[in-house]
Amino acid sequence: MTAAPRIVEVGGGVPYRIAIGPGLLADGAALAGHVRGRHVLLVSDSTVAPLYVATVREALHAARPDLLVGTFVLPAGESSKTLANFGAAIEAMATLGATRDACIFALGGGVVGDLAGFAAACWMRGVDCVQLPTTLLSMVDSSVGGKTAVDIAQGKNLVGAFHPPRAVFADTSTLRTLPARELRAGLAEVIKYGALGDPGLFHWLEAERERLLAGDEAALAQAIASSCEHKAAIVERDPLERGERALLNLGHTFGHAIETEQGYGSPHNANLNHGEAVAVGMVLAARLSAGLGIAEAADADRLASLLGAYGLPTTLPSGLTPAALLARMRLDKKNLAGRLRLVLWRGIGRAEVVPDVDESAVLAVLSG
């Protein structure tokens, strides 16, 4: 008999539940319980759809034979998170005849979750969205908190909306088919939670590296639950990122600049993917903190050592110029009045938002 899933409650003005455990994509009664009307659009990508769309569709129809279920499949990869594909998802809702009680199911990683959530936020000024993350990174980060967006040439996630999901189902069975590189990318975001606010989690990640990298389901479920609990608590207090929630972006200002400058990575090219870029970004933020005299260099070394032990990059890729990266960072959504506002730290577990960061110090770190 399958054990009951772990549940993480997200409170605040729009409360919802995160269920974590194996076999959740086949639980039609649980999935269909969040569909208020008759129209469902399954949004997925070309990697995930062949693996799981049929399972979800059959589960929904078994529980609710009256449902009209459409499918919209994106090419896999960050380069698909565009306004054009957002428009195509909206067209798919129109073709389905979706009404205001429709529901979009986001079945995939962060790209699918972000784009599908944004489509749900905009169709008829907002319909329900259920997140079905299938990568570790999306389970611990992008599926939780209601941030939805697409990318444009000038930067990541610059066009979007806050739209909390109706529910999140993190089916850990899907991690069995996850490539090792994608597993490591997700673990970068787990490490982020320890680095920004939980030294105990950081120490646990140092101790449990072998189990996590081997894909041990119990260890991964614990990592997912801990990450979601941290994010849920912060999101509940600051749903629209007007203060504390910005801490969740530790490493992301540097990381997004790297991704944008490289042209967005995919599972099949040498460019850094999101988790890898965030890993480099966290080390740069830690080294900048040391350079500004607010943290010890030894803490930055410990962070770099842990990320490296998980097979993650810790230095800038070749071919990126400091001036170009700084120009990308100036477009970051956290900046105020044209001044850099970065998430830095005072050591492991003590992140903070630092306003008006000196650009020359940032350039020095980017220059190595």
Results as ranks from 00 to 15, higher is better:
3 A>F: 09
5 P>F: 06
6 R>D: 15
11 G>M: 13
11 G>S: 15
12 G>E: 03
15 P>E: 07
24 L>R: 06
24 L>W: 09
24 L>E: 10
25 L>I: 13
26 A>P: 03
29 A>V: 15
29 A>W: 14
30 A>C: 09
32 A>H: 06
34 H>V: 11
38 R>P: 00
41 L>P: 05
48 V>S: 07
48 V>F: 10
54 A>N: 11
57 R>N: 08
59 A>L: 10
64 R>G: 02
67 L>T: 11
69 V>S: 01
71 T>G: 00
72 F>D: 02
80 S>R: 05
82 T>E: 00
87 G>V: 03
92 A>V: 06
95 T>W: 04
97 G>D: 01
102 A>M: 03
104 I>A: 07
112 V>G: 13
118 F>W: 05
118 F>N: 07
123 W>Q: 00
131 Q>H: 12
131 Q>K: 09
131 Q>I: 12
132 L>N: 04
132 L>F: 07
134 T>L: 07
134 T>D: 01
138 S>R: 03
139 M>Y: 05
140 V>D: 02
143 S>P: 01
146 G>Y: 09
147 K>F: 01
152 I>F: 03
158 L>M: 14
160 G>T: 07
160 G>P: 08
161 A>S: 13
162 F>A: 09
164 P>A: 12
168 V>S: 05
168 V>I: 14
170 A>N: 02
171 D>E: 06
173 S>Y: 08
174 T>F: 02
184 R>Q: 10
185 A>N: 15
192 K>D: 03
192 K>H: 03
192 K>Q: 05
193 Y>E: 04
196 L>T: 03
198 D>M: 10
199 P>K: 03
200 G>N: 13
204 W>G: 02
205 L>Y: 00
205 L>N: 02
211 R>H: 13
212 L>N: 06
214 A>W: 08
216 D>M: 07
218 A>V: 14
221 A>P: 02
223 A>R: 00
225 A>D: 06
228 C>Q: 08
228 C>E: 03
229 E>F: 01
230 H>P: 02
233 A>F: 10
235 V>R: 04
239 P>H: 09
242 R>T: 15
244 E>P: 01
247 L>I: 15
249 N>I: 13
250 L>N: 02
255 G>E: 05
259 E>R: 12
259 E>T: 14
260 T>D: 01
263 G>M: 11
267 P>K: 07
270 A>H: 15
277 A>Q: 11
278 V>T: 06
282 M>T: 08
284 L>I: 11
286 A>I: 12
289 S>L: 12
291 G>R: 13
296 E>A: 15
299 D>W: 11
301 D>K: 07
308 G>Q: 00
316 L>M: 10
327 A>R: 14
329 M>L: 14
333 K>Y: 13
333 K>M: 14
333 K>G: 12
334 K>Y: 12
345 W>C: 15
347 G>N: 04
348 I>Q: 00
349 G>I: 15
352 E>R: 14
353 V>W: 04
354 V>A: 08
356 D>C: 05
360 S>K: 11
360 S>L: 10
365 V>E: 02
